[in-house]
């Protein structure tokens, strides 16, 4: 069984090729090819009359780096993504742990409660936050009742955007972590308990190291989602609060500056990719060290 003639080998290669071929074709056709074209566009020049002029220049990228406004937008996007990712980890872990170790028949209800928000689009939740945080909204009116004339409008602030993104990304984090925690043998924790570890020690030295791959996967997933967020900053951030995705769309749709939009796209993509790659490498090194 172990050594088969090479004919069988090439037959298997052919079957595998047929099975994986369509998926590969779609990714090459609708991701790799368009990205290559977009990379070329990002080196073109904007022209007031024809919108785009064939060129070979780095000026779109230089404009982004040199103008403090654009660099500021990148910085805002990064900080919102990092803060929401950290909060997702801190808030998501206890919930995922609780659900993973749940034994009762309520477990599937709990999972449904986490899955349901996934299905509810970002616009639905943005509307809820507008009602809560906006002018004349619940928080505004209630604080107005406590302190007459002292209403608080939190909408169109970085706080509103961060809380909106957090509420959208939490379910992704919880589901990722729950799967990983469920695969950790509960007896390991009981063993730590019975050997006299305090709950804190048990958490730091048993649960957390074993859940680290899940924390990394979930963290990278929600980080990418936050860097990419469009509807939440658009609706909850308003006109003055800028993040990368809405800015890119505006350059494309309002200013019709495709070369610059293309450059923004690559800056956003490369920032996201290099940060996720760096965190993966860091974790791998830690694992090899341990």
């Amino acid at each position: 069984m172990a050594r088969q003639p090479s004919r069988r080998r090439s037959g298997e290669g052919l079957t595998a090729g047929l099975l994986v071929g369509p998926a590969t074709a779609i990714v090459l056709l609708s991701l790799v090819a368009p990205l290559a074209l977009l990379a070329r566009y990002s080196l073109n020049q904007y022209d007031r009359m024809t919108f785009m002029k064939e060129a070979f220049t780095a000026e779109n990228y230089l404009r982004f780096v040199a103008d403090p406004f654009y660099a500021g937008v990148l910085w805002t996007t990064l900080s919102i993504a990092l803060v929401t990712t950290a909060l997702c980890l801190v808030i998501g872990f206890p919930i995922a742990y609780g659900i993973a170790r749940m034994q009762s028949r309520w477990k599937s209800t709990a999972v449904l409660l986490v899955i349901l928000p996934l299905f509810i689009g970002s616009t639905v939740r943005a509307l809820g936050w507008i009602g809560l945080l906006g002018r004349g909204g619940l928080v505004d009116s209630m604080s107005g009742l406590v302190v007459p004339g002292g209403g608080v409008t939190l909408l169109y602030t970085s706080f509103a955007v961060a809380i909106g993104i957090l509420s959208i990304n939490l379910p992704y984090m919880i589901l990722t972590l729950q799967g990983v925690i469920e695969s950790i043998d509960a007896r390991l924790e009981e063993a730590a308990d019975s050997l006299g570890a305090t709950p804190g020690r048990r958490f730091w030295h048993v649960v957390l190291p074993l859940a680290l791959p899940g924390l990394a996967t979930g963290g990278i997933l929600v980080f990418i989602l936050a860097m990419n967020a469009y509807a939440t900053p658009f609706l909850l951030g308003g006109a003055r609060f800028q993040m990368m995705a809405p800015m890119l769309y505006r350059e494309y749709a309002v200013n019709n500056n495709w070369p610059f939009a293309a450059a923004i796209a690559f800056i956003l993509m490369l920032t996201t990719l290099s940060l996720t790659a760096a965190s993966t490498l860091l974790l791998q090194r830690r694992y090899q060290g341990a």
Binding site: V114, P117, R125, G128, G131, I163, G164, S167
Partner: peptide, 8 residues
Amino acid sequence: LMLLPLLM
């Protein structure tokens, strides 16, 4: 955080 916006 997850359910309040929906209820609202």
